[in-house]
Design a protein around this nucleic acid. Structure first.
Length: 267
DNA sequence: ATGGTTGGGGGCCAA
């Protein structure tokens, strides 16, 4: 019976891990994912609160942090193997960490560049970097083999229903055609299955991020789906459940992103 | 068309 117990995996752009420990306390107590993937930890690897997570049942950690910005971390109940990172676009940013579970599943935890405000690669080097990063992901993904999960803050809302207004966001970074076509190419490159849309039909709006700048984020609900969980084709039959914990966006001192949980049974 | 908020780090930048 424990043999078919689903793996519960969570992804959450935490927007500073040190500022969100009270949030994480509540989340781990209530939802107890087996594996927790964080983005935007905003701390150097050496200063990551390792003891805090170990005390709460997550002694296995793959931390890839940097001072000030970005940074990803994968925390686990079970041992992690083959921890790898890679210098995407030669920028030296901490935006990806790969880990393997004993089952052989490889988890790729990503923080894709946000891309700045102006959706023009000529005028805005941040946007050029974002497009180059996505292009590099497509080439990389083609060469993958074996069971894998690609998740994290991809900073792109690919479907019309992944934003509060498709028409009004077509020229807003995160939902422009150069970004959404690249995300579709990335999905195609390995036959990735969108685990969130596996459960929620594309006609239905689905968001994981709400701006801090809204007067009342819940009432205006001008959200976007920037966070994603994709599984390689062989894992898709194991998909059991998915939840976006929008409530966590309303907890005290929240991240602007909500956590996403996916349960995957062994296949 | 603009401004709205947050965190990090050190007096603004990125999101």
């Amino acid at each position: 019976m424990t043999a078919d117990k689903p793996l519960r995996i969570a992804t959450w752009n935490i927007n500073s891990v040190r500022a969100r420990l009270p949030l994480l306390e509540r989340f781990l107590a209530d939802y107890a994912p087996d594996v927790l993937c964080l983005q935007e930890i905003k701390v150097e690897t050496a200063s990551f609160p390792r003891a805090w997570f170990a005390d709460r049942g997550y002694p296995h950690m793959a931390i890839h942090g940097q001072r000030n910005h970005h940074g990803v971390a994968t925390l686990s109940h079970q041992p992690l193997f083959d921890i790898e990172t890679r210098d995407w676009c030669g920028m030296g940013d901490a935006r990806h960490v790969a880990t393997a579970l004993s089952s052989g599943i490889v988890i790729h935890n990503f923080y894709v560049p946000a891309g700045g405000d102006v959706p023009d690669p000529e005028a805005n080097p941040r946007f050029a970097h974002k497009l180059a990063f996505l292009d590099e992901m497509v080439a990389w993904s083609r060469k993958l083999s074996g069971p894998a999960i690609l998740l994290g803050d991809l900073n792109v809302a690919p479907l019309e229903t992944d934003v509060w207004s498709h028409r009004q966001l077509l020229k807003v970074v995160s939902h422009t055609p150069p970004e959404t076509t690249r995300l579709a190419a990335l999905a195609d490159s390995h036959g990735w299955v969108d685990a969130m849309r596996h459960f929620v039909p594309p006609e239905q709006k689905l968001f994981t991020w709400w701006s801090y700048r809204a007067r009342d984020w819940r009432a205006s609900n001008r959200g976007r789906r920037l966070d994603h969980v994709w599984v390689s084709p062989e894992l898709a039959p194991g998909l059991r459940a998915m939840a976006v914990l929008a409530d966590a966006r309303g907890w005290e001192r929240p991240s602007d992103h909500a956590p996403v949980l996916v349960d995957i049974a062994p296949v």
